[in-house]
Design a binder for these strands. Structure first.
Length: 584
RNA sequence: GCUCCAGUAGCUCAGGGGAUAGAGCAACUGCCUUCUAAGCAGUCGGUCGUAGGUUCGAAUCCUACCUGGGGCGCCA
């Protein structure tokens, strides 16, 4: 109902001028959704804010505005309440007409943006030769959701996986690979590392224990930087092996993302340093090339440097991130760059961007956004770990969710005496398990830490994926029971007679407002909240209003409401990266 | 020491200038001869961390402090 709000705002602006003259032409009518449904649908708080300026009591100001306000096509007669609130209630006829307009639109009345931006969403970013673990969960899920929402709104989105595929740790990995799997370098497809985590651990252990191994590793880093062919081949093998493992997880999570790791920027790093030097920003300190930062101090209270080139001549992640931000603006022509990483990196990004700005690499029209999120914690409030204290592999976490969903489903089938095929059970379990993990994460305000609980996320009650999926399934149940093909309903008149119908209708029409908010603040929990409330309102409607047994034209009107609910749920859930089920 | 984030019902969390602060879970009470119970209706539950300040109005903005969690020179 963005258009509705815009119209109401305009009417208020006209009324303000008519009541108090041209000097109030630019006054914001402070029009917001009503704080409580009993006051109506929208309220204007402008009268109170004008008390001082106009030197009149707010109730009188409200009265004068209402006398000039023409909203008869949209609303019932405005009322004045309390200290001077102007309350508005939308007319049923207006809602009916709005619903009818979106009925046959696959986008449910949400027009693509008129200002599409080149947007980069940088998310997930696991490290090569390490398995994805619980630490990658939130970035992957939140980043994917943000990308999906912005794509739907009509932005041109580039999803980038800023993989950890370069750096000193590759010295030991390559050395270990060459020594433990020599055949892999000469024979195609001979490499089967299996568990990458234990491969990494073996390499790390040898690095820590063996001086000769350490020295060989150091030489391999040099060889890698220098582009030695055999070393690069080994590095490539490690990358490809990792991509396969990542791909499995991304397939399970239904994630699309383009690999563009740190190595991509390697050829650009020297240029970053020399350009910073040319800009006069570079200072040598303790052998390292640094840019000193404003607003950051070290423990002694002295200005903190951002190290661009280490004293050994190597580069670090600040250099890579500088190269990346410059490349994304200059080569990708990004207007908006969104980094989905944990909250702990907030300082790092502030620092890197400060340097990039000083260097003149960030035009005023480019927006850099850090989308931070909190830690995943166990139910004890501590860092989420396995019982033995190890980091939880993402694969295990997802498998566990699916396994629990399957056990729940099978118990319920037995209880209800239902017979379902293996395929049905496996599919429902996978969708429920994966979507529960995603929804639990997305439905919380991402800025705070998040307590991971299988029991809560898989619960059939409350603000969970299964509850929303069930609301969708209920609508499909109506179609099966009544032999209704929703696509054949056509462009049918809608009539809102019961309160539950009006409440549902208003909520359905508020979808675009939620997406607009999400476009700005990138908070997926808002969309979750909207969909949860939609499910609640649908369940109330379903409880109070007979659909199949109603007489025409009410019957079709209610079928349309149910169908619009299902389509809104399906679209909304798809933007969260969650697919729906027809039965469960 | 500096810095970032958080502190709201027993628990998990929404709300981030506007009316009497919301939801879910848990606990308790009703409702399946009905398209429906993975649901609906209801009860119980609050010094919005503390103290000041700004404002017609503060959970929301500002300042200080308390508590918890991150980060802070050559890992990413």
């Amino acid at each position: 109902m963005n258009a509705t709000i815009a119209q109401l705002k305009q009417r208020f602006e006209q009324a303000l001028v008519a009541a108090f003259g041209r000097e109030l032409a630019e006054t914001d009518p402070i029009l917001v959704p009503a704080s409580n449904p009993k006051f109506g649908d929208y309220q204007s708080n402008v009268a109170m804010s004008l008390t001082k300026k106009l030197g009149k009591p707010p109730q009188g100001i409200a009265q004068a505005i209402v006398e000039q306000l023409d909203v008869t096509d949209l609303c019932e007669a405005p009322t004045i309440a309390g200290p001077g609130f102007i309350n508005l209630r939308l007319k049923s006829s207006y809602l009916e007409q709005q619903l009818q307009q979106i009925q046959t639109d696959p986008r449910l009345g949400i027009a693509p943006t008129k200002q599409p931006q080149h947007t980069i969403v940088d998310f997930s970013s696991p490290n090569i030769a390490k398995e994805m673990h619980v630490g990658h969960l939130r970035s992957t899920i939140i980043g994917d959701c943000i990308a999906r929402v912005l794509e739907f709104i009509g932005h041109d989105v580039l999803r980038i996986n800023h993989l950890g595929d370069w750096g000193t740790q590759f010295g030991m990995l390559i050395t270990h690979l060459k020594q433990a799997y020599p055949e892999a370098l000469t024979t195609a497809n001979a490499l089967a590392l299996g568990d990458l985590t234990s491969f990494y651990k073996q390499a790390k252990q040898r690095f820590d224990e063996d001086e000769e191994f350490r020295e060989t590793s150091r030489l391999e880093v040099v060889a890698l930087q220098a582009g030695n062919e055999e070393t690069l081949r080994a590095w490539n093998l490690l990358c490809e092996q990792s991509f396969l493992a990542f791909r499995e997880i991304y397939d399970l999570l239904d994630i699309q993302i383009a690999n563009r790791g740190e190595s991509f920027y390697n050829p650009l790093l020297a240029g970053v340093v020399s350009d910073l030097d040319k800009a006069g920003l570079l200072v040598e300190d303790q052998g390292a090339q640094c840019v000193f930062l404003e607003g950051f101090t070290n423990k002694e209270g002295n200005p903190l440097p951002l190290i661009i080139k280490k004293s050994d001549g190597g580069y670090n992640y600040a250099t890579t991130d500088l190269a990346a931000v410059r490349y994304r603006i200059q080569q990708d022509h990004a207007d908006r760059i969104i980094y989905v990483t944990d909250a702990g990196q907030a300082n790092h990004f502030t620092q890197v961007w400060q340097v990039a700005r000083k260097a003149g690499w960030i035009p005023d029209n480019v927006e850099l956004v850090h989308v931070p999120f909190g830690l995943v914690q166990g139910e004890d409030g501590k860092k989420f770990k396995t019982r033995s204290g190890d980091t939880v592999r993402l694969r295990d976490l997802l498998d566990e969710a699916v396994a629990r969903a399957k056990a729940d489903l099978e118990a319920r089938l037995q209880e209800e005496g239902r017979q379902e095929s293996e395929d049905f059970i496996d599919h429902v379990a996978e969708v429920v398990g994966i979507s529960s993990v995603k929804y639990a994460d997305l439905s919380q305000n991402r800025t705070s830490n998040y307590i991971f609980s299988y029991d809560k996320m898989l619960s059939l009650q409350g603000n969970t994926a299964p509850y929303l999926l069930y609301a969708y399934v209920r609508v499909q149940g109506i179609s099966r029971k009544g032999n209704i093909d929703f696509q054949q309903l056509g462009d049918h008149a809608i009539q809102l007679t019961e309160e539950a119908e009006s409440t549902l209708a208003k909520h359905l029409l508020g979808f675009d407002e939620v997406l607009s908010a999400l476009e700005m603040d990138l908070m997926p929990n808002r969309l979750c909240q909207y969909l949860f409330e939609l499910s609640q309102k649908f369940n109330q409607f379903y409880d109070r209003c007979p659909i199949l047994q109603a007489d025409e034209p009410q019957r079709t009107s209610r079928l349309v409401l149910a169908d619009l609910t299902a389509r809104t749920l399906k679209l909304g859930l798809s933007l969260l990266g969650i697919q729906v089920l027809e039965r469960m």
